[in-house]
């Protein structure tokens, strides 16, 4: 079991490095970040200086090595050793240290990528967790109800509503909630992100509710249908017939024998969907103007802020990889066949 976990984590690290390489090479081809800060009166000499000071003149293999080293032990900017030492003496506030795992430095925003992500991540994580809880609880609940009442009116209503909700685009739901529920009808306070430190847990939750609902509705609709299908499949298995033949009550048959097998595959899907959300819910964050990673990605993209984009892609990839590993390990706990083979 522990060997299994260690093996999965090692493989995960290798995959992550491979991903970093691909991302790095891809973005390296996109151009020289030094050009972005060279300014209006950029001379070839000035550009060459900046390029050299930030190490963009070095071969890609060397730059990649430094980047990976930065991930492991951290980095100091500017990267040119002589220049940095001179700067340290003349103007130490311009030397920037980036802690491990250092994802790079944005010349354009004059901020380390780590700081940029740390600033925007809390909003995204808050919305993602909130939405995840809503969609799992209600998605599974309605999915199970629909399966148990298969073919009855309750099932038809749930499936019908689900289909409509699933078809609604996120920007429509978000705009509707914002414009009507919050602004026109004033059924809910205007959504505004308040961190726990600033406003306490209650205000934090209130601020998150509408964006989280926007995000959760779509996933919830999908999970109702998936859960329903899994439960129906499980209830048609032979071991359910065995459970009934033993004389167990319908409640035990459904909850102990039926749901256990139905909800296990849901675990892996939920883990991956949640991880994907951690990369930022671009549309939802944009509709509500929340300062999350999705918005950061949009802004950085608009500004061609390559270092931040590289950092975001790596964080998103790492989140998906981590979720994969966690799901695999959890799976081994729930499914004895995985555990022992």
């Amino acid at each position: 079991m522990i060997a299994f976990a260690i093996r999965r984590i090692l493989v995960g690290i290798v995959l992550l490095l491979a991903m970093v390489l691909v991302v790095f090479v891809l973005f390296f081809a996109a151009g020289n970040p030094a050009r972005d800060v060279c300014g209006k009166y950029c001379t070839p000499q000035k550009l060459a200086n900046i390029t050299q000071v930030y190490g963009y003149d070095k071969p890609i293999t060397y730059q990649f090595g430094q980047f990976v080293k930065g991930l492991a032990v951290g980095r100091d900017y500017p990267v040119d050793d002589k220049y940095r030492e001179a700067l340290q003496k003349s103007n130490p506030s311009l030397v920037i240290h980036c802690d491990a795992p250092c994802l790079g430095y944005s010349l354009r925003s004059a901020i380390t990528v780590n700081d940029a992500i740390a600033k925007y991540a809390p909003v995204t994580i808050s919305i993602a967790v909130y939405a995840f809880i809503i969609w799992i609880v209600f998605g599974v609940l309605f999915g199970v109800i629909a399966a148990v009442f298969k073919g009855k009116w309750l099932d038809r209503v749930i499936v019908g509503v689900t289909l409509v909700v699933y078809a609604l685009p996120t920007f429509f739901v978000g705009t509707f909630l914002l414009q009507f529920i919050a602004i026109r009808w004033k059924l809910f306070p205007y959504p505004r992100y308040v961190s726990i430190a600033d406003g306490g847990v209650f205000n934090w939750l209130i601020g998150l509710t509408l964006p989280a609902m926007t995000l959760a509705l779509f996933y919830m609709a999908a999970y109702v249908r998936i859960t329903r299908a899994f439960v129906l499949e499980s209830l048609s298995e032979d071991y359910i017939r065995t459970a009934r033949a033993k004389g167990l009550t319908e409640r035990v048959v459904l909850f102990k024998h039926g749901l256990r097998a139905a909800l296990t595959p849901l675990l892996s899907m939920a883990g991956l969907d949640f991880a994907a959300l951690l990369a930022g819910a671009v549309i939802t964050e944009a509709v509500f103007s929340y300062q999350g990673l999705g918005l950061l990605a949009v802004i950085s993209n608009r500004n061609s802020d390559l270092p931040i984009l590289i950092g975001l892609v790596i964080v998103a990839g790492a989140a998906v990889l981590a979720a994969n590993i966690i799901v695999d390990i959890l799976y081994a706990f729930v499914d004895p066949r995985v555990r022992l083979s």
Binding site: D238, Y239, H257, R260, A261, T264, V334, D335, P336
Partner: peptide, 10 residues
């Protein structure tokens, strides 16, 4: 079929 008639998780 005793394999499918037994619950795989218990």
């Amino acid at each position: 079929d005793p394999l499918s008639a037994l619950h795989p998780y218990y």
